[in-house]
């Protein structure tokens, strides 16, 4: 039995949409502890809990079914994805716990490979795995609960953008399209490798470059697609303008969109978001790119435009695909949150 054989979909494409999610969340009791610095109200990447003047705890969890056949690679991608939320909050991961769902009938050697891959990435992040929890399930799933530390005055939320900011994206888009094409045998090995290299890349290296810059907001791009996060950053006050031609793209992604190899998650994102963005100037294939769900996507960083070039230069030393993709402007009455040209 192969890793993907009984999976209906994989990676962040399986995320429950934000609209549906908020329906469930609204019935939960509101927490008003002053020590909870970031909670689920702001749909941020991780929760942050105040410990002391100079330390806060960052807590996050992420898991999903495999999107690749190679269990070791799947482990590495899942761990890079789970660790990313800590980086997106400005934190440094210290501790991780494995979360495992695994079919009873599947070869346990496969599970060993998944866990080994995950452990490698946690080690690369400078954190330790200190246990976990595993259950039998029909579909394999893997991920981690990650704890990190951040200085309370250095917390990077997803909603601090201001007019005059530039937006930097640190990884290429199109992971969902390339992996979808790969599952039906249409992606070349180069296209597949470019996507998996991107997914297993830690956001640590880009995050480390942020210190010293006046960063207003950071998030990591996930299954909600680039547009989902742009809308989030725009909030109610700002209009985000993005130039499509400046977006870094994985090889093949635009071609697969042109061949109508659309993913279900991108269409869910489209249904959810199209009212909030003006993308009418883009072809259908280009639209699919900005709705494309990203597994272990890059960081989306908002900081004053005057500093953006210098930060970009620093990030590009280790992540050469990083690009300045757009600007944050004042949103005039009746304007959409996001305009992509």
């Amino acid at each position: 039995m192969s890793l993907l054989s009984n999976c209906t979909s994989g990676g962040c494409g399986v995320k429950i949409g934000p609209a549906e999610l908020s329906r469930f969340l609204k019935n939960l009791p509101r927490i008003s502890d002053p020590r909870l610095l970031v909670g689920f109200e702001s749909s941020d990447d991780a929760a942050v809990w105040w410990l002391s003047e100079d330390q806060a705890l960052v807590s996050t969890v992420d898991f999903f079914p495999p999107m690749v056949e190679d269990p070791h690679l799947f482990g590495r991608i899942a761990a890079a994805n789970a660790l990313s939320d800590v980086y997106a909050m400005g934190g440094r991961p210290i501790l991780a716990l494995n979360l495992v769902c695994f079919p009873e009938k599947m070869d346990p050697v496969i599970l060993g490979e998944i866990l080994a891959g995950g452990a490698e990435k946690v080690q690369e992040a400078g954190a330790v795995i200190s246990g976990g929890h595993s259950i039998y399930d029909h579909e394999p799933k893997y991920g981690l609960a990650v704890t990190g530390l951040v200085r309370p005055d250095r917390i990077l939320t997803n909603n601090g953008s201001a007019a005059g900011d530039g937006l930097i994206l640190t990884k290429s888009l199109g992971v969902g399209l390339v992996m979808g094409a790969n599952r039906v045998g249409l992606a070349s090995s180069e296209q597949y490798c470019a996507a998996t290299v991107s997914m297993e890349r830690l956001n640590r290296y880009a995050a480390e470059k942020l210190s010293g810059f006046e960063v207003h907001a950071v998030t990591d791009v996930t299954g909600f697609g680039l547009l989902g996060h742009l809308v989030e950053m725009a909030g109610r006050s700002w209009a985000v303008n993005v130039n499509f031609d400046s977006l870094p793209l994985l090889p093949g992604a635009l071609d697969f969109a042109g061949d109508y190899l659309f993913t279900a998650a991108a269409q869910r994102n489209r249904n959810q978001l199209s009212g909030q963005a003006d993308i009418s100037g883009l072809s259908l294939s280009k639209q699919e790119i900005i709705f494309d769900p990203q597994t272990s996507g890059g960081l989306l960083i908002s900081l004053p435009l005057a500093q953006a070039e210098e930060l970009l230069k620093a990030i590009r030393v280790d992540d050469p695909q990083a690009s300045l993709i757009g600007q944050v402007l004042v949103r005039r009455k009746g304007e959409p949150a996001v305009i992509v040209l």
Binding site: G180, A181, R183, F262, T263
Partner: peptide
Amino acid sequence: IGKPCPIPVIEAKK
């Protein structure tokens, strides 16, 4: 039924 995207599109194109 039970076929995830993009399989229905591929089959339809064929």
